[in-house]
Amino acid sequence: MRLASRITITIILLTTLGGLCVHYDTTYDENWPHPTGDQFQEQSPEQFVGERVLLFGEVQTVDADAITIHVTDDNDNVAAELEVLGIEDRVKPGGVVQVYGVLESKTKLHAEQTVVVNRDPSATIYKLGASVVGLLLAVAYFFRQWQIDFQKLAFKPRTTKDPEPEEVHNRG
């Protein structure tokens, strides 16, 4: 494919991808069956009292029978501070949890199910660290197999057993 065609298609696809991100954000809140941090910020958690909700939050304090979590919006601002009862898993301040249960008041939730996403800040660092190492390994392996062809502005395999079609054509 000609370079101009590839650039044109790439621009069209990038624009479509941008459109997808806009549409996803515009329609997400109405399709996600639970309140989001943005909705808490705009409408106050009081609107959702009595509902069974799934929330993600960062653990602030841990007591014997309850923890407090911060639910944040898209800007990472705190949209709600909730006291969560019924947590059985071990978790520390700075950890991240999913809690599913009835919102009893605008500041209290009784969890029926919980998932500890990150037990404490070190679990978050471990997760991100493992991801970065994995990413670097994948990229390094890719560049062992592929190289950049600056003339064509394209990646090409480092070892080609068969001559490229254009070269075959030139010989003829």
Binding site: R6, I9, L20, C21, H23, D25, Y28, D74, F155
Partner: peptide, 26 residues
């Protein structure tokens, strides 16, 4: 409104793979 989490969906994967397929000459 803009949410990059759209990249982590089926639609995002199709478009990203499409863009990736344009970085090779053939």
């Amino acid at each position: 409104p803009f949410d990059l989490d759209a990249l982590s969906t089926l639609g995002g994967a199709i478009i990203l793979a499409g863009i990736g397929s344009m970085v090779v000459a053939n």
